[in-house]
């Protein structure tokens, strides 16, 4: 287990190194930092001095070395707009995004699992056809349409749910600003998380259905029937556990998609998370913030995939992690 994690960490570092190169290149190539910092009225002489001070005249490799050195110490640069450390800004927005993605993921699982299983048990029934039509529709409707429609009906027409923002938040252990522990926060979470869940649910319904149909035709399911155990156990224990193996793998990869779509969701619902921050940073050409965002998302992605690999080995006994167990 330890050896596995160690190897995974090495791989993760390599991935992060590549991301850091990209982040750095963006910083260097996306517009003129001095222009961004001081505006129009500063004389040319001061501009050159500032350029020298910022180290922008050094060779590229030296600049990158400096960037990497600082990054390793947790310094991902200073935002042009906020004039604060970018990492601090992003981390302060991280809870909002993580809570949104997490609740969306939970919704995806809660919706897709029963629907996918039902659609697999009686593939030709009306219900499963309806589920399939819904999922095809869901795959083809972009999230901003879904989100806007949800917002229009639930927030504007029926006035049931708030249309923007995060609502009331509470501090958990002084570290984490959470909206999950009061009614207002949860109400605010509903529309954004549903919209975000809408991106992945159709795909997971189809994936679970396909894998489930496969599993149901296997010999061990026929054998399970011959043991006289109940139908629900056969579907939801015997078949579903085998179905989950590929689903978990895909889920790990799709966390990236989910993070990408938080940018859209957060923009639509003015959700004060990393995605919204990123959009703002792009419109303000706040390059250090953009590159810091890339780094943080890279870390999130690598961590979730490592966790998925670990979970996978727990679900599938045939997978033995190198250096773990017998």
């Amino acid at each position: 287990m330890l050896r596995f994690i160690g190897r995974r960490l090495l791989q993760a570092m390599f991935v992060l190194l590549i991301i850091s190169v990209i982040s750095f290149m963006i910083q260097d190539k996306l517009g003129d930092p001095v222009q961004q910092m001081v505006g129009q009225s500063v004389p040319q002489q001061d501009r050159l001095a500032l350029q020298q001070d910022l180290g922008l005249n050094d060779p590229l490799l030296v600049q990158y070395g400096r960037f990497l050195g600082r990054a390793l110490q947790g310094d991902l640069g200073t935002s042009y707009y906020y004039k604060e450390a970018t990492l601090d800004i992003i981390l302060s927005r991280l809870p909002a995004t993580l809570e949104l993605s997490f609740s969306a993921l939970v919704l995806v699982i809660l919706l897709a699992t029963p629907l996918g299983v039902v659609a697999a048990i009686h593939p030709k029934s009306l219900l499963s056809r309806a589920i399939l039509i819904f999922s095809t529709l869901g795959l083809s409707v972009p999230i901003f349409i879904v989100a806007v429609f949800l917002m229009y009906f639930f927030a504007i027409e029926w006035r049931l749910l708030p249309s923007f923002g995060r609502g009331e938040t509470t501090w958990v252990m002084g570290l984490w600003q959470s909206g999950l522990f009061n009614k207002d926060g949860l109400l605010h979470l509903l529309l954004p998380s549903f919209s975000l869940a809408f991106v992945l649910t159709p795909m997971f319904i189809r994936l679970i259905r396909a894998e489930m149909i496969d599993a149901l035709q296997s010999e061990y399911i026929r054998y399970a029937w011959s043991k006289g155990i109940s139908a629900s156990r056969i579907y939801f224990v015997h078949a579903l556990k085998n179905t989950m193996l590929p689903v978990i793998t895909v889920a790990g990869i799709q966390v990236g998609t989910l993070v990408a779509y938080t940018i859209l969701t957060e923009s639509i619902f003015q959700w004060p998370g990393m995605g919204l921050l990123f959009m703002e940073a792009v419109t303000r050409v706040d390059v250090p913030l953009i590159s810091a965002y890339l780094m943080v998302v890279g870390v999130i992605f690598v961590v979730t995939n490592t966790v998925v690999d670990l979970v996978y080995s727990l679900v599938n006994p045939r997978v033995r992690l190198p250096g773990y167990g017998s």
Binding site: Y220, Y223, K227, H238, N242
Partner: peptide, 19 residues
Amino acid sequence: TGSDIAMIFQDPMTSLNPC
């Protein structure tokens, strides 16, 4: 089924649930 009448299948390797 499974108690008074029980059955043994042809291929034990694929009949037992791998999970």
